[in-house]
């Protein structure tokens, strides 16, 4: 094989590289880019924190809510959080434009709040099972399930066993 022929062929084909930044670079649909979290679908199960390889996802709590915090600069885009998320609240977008100015490096953070509810019986603040979790756990969410989920774990135990024989 004459290498000159290869060179001529390649010359005829033109550039093999993407024209970025002067043109668009193609991004496949499966590309694992910046993580996005759907606030409404997150149920605060903490599975993403458990599997996060880089420790980019952390949970914190205060009196009113559970907070999911993701540091995008610590994220390695492995996508484990998306794989293990039971409600598919986490997705990896195709956004690979993650460069930013040095002074913005501590601002590459996303924050999701999952508010606590007060128990309708005793008033204790607790993390209520959110709608996506209810849909995942029950075929149909009836009146009984809806009533029970507004109770804190202790009251729910009492309520569920009411009328049961010892």
């Amino acid at each position: 094989m004459n290498f000159l022929q290869v060179l001529i062929d390649n010359l005829r084909k033109g550039p093999a590289t993407e024209p970025f930044p002067f043109g668009d670079a193609s991004t496949p649909a499966a590309y694992r880019g910046r993580v996005a979290i759907d606030q409404d679908a997150c149920v605060g199960c903490r599975m993403c924190e458990h599997v996060c390889a880089g420790g980019a996802i952390r949970f914190a709590e205060d009196n009113e809510a559970l907070h999911l915090v993701i540091w995008h600069n610590t994220c390695v885009s492995c996508g484990l959080c998306a794989v293990y998320c039971p409600t598919k609240a986490i997705t990896l977008t195709n956004n690979w434009h993650v460069s930013h100015r040095q002074e913005d490096k501590y601002k590459q953070v996303d924050h999701v709040t999952i508010p606590y509810s007060a128990c309708t019986s005793c008033g204790v603040v607790f993390l209520k099972a959110q709608d996506p979790l209810m849909q995942l756990a029950y075929k149909t969410v009836g009146a009984n399930e809806t009533r029970l989920r507004d109770l804190c774990p202790d009251c729910r135990r009492v309520e569920s066993s009411r009328g049961a024989r010892p």
């Binding site: 290869v6 390649n10 093999a16 499966a30 590309y31 492995c78």
Partner: peptide
């Protein structure tokens, strides 16, 4: 180096496979 570039360019066909099917060029997870 022209052969180097040629082989790397051909390898890019496989890199595109990785990026399209797995979502990353090296760490295919």
């Amino acid at each position: 180096d022209s052969l180097f570039m040629h082989v790397m360019q051909a390898r890019e066909i496989m890199q595109d496979v990785k990026e399209t099917i797995f979502g990353n060029r090296m760490d295919i997870a």
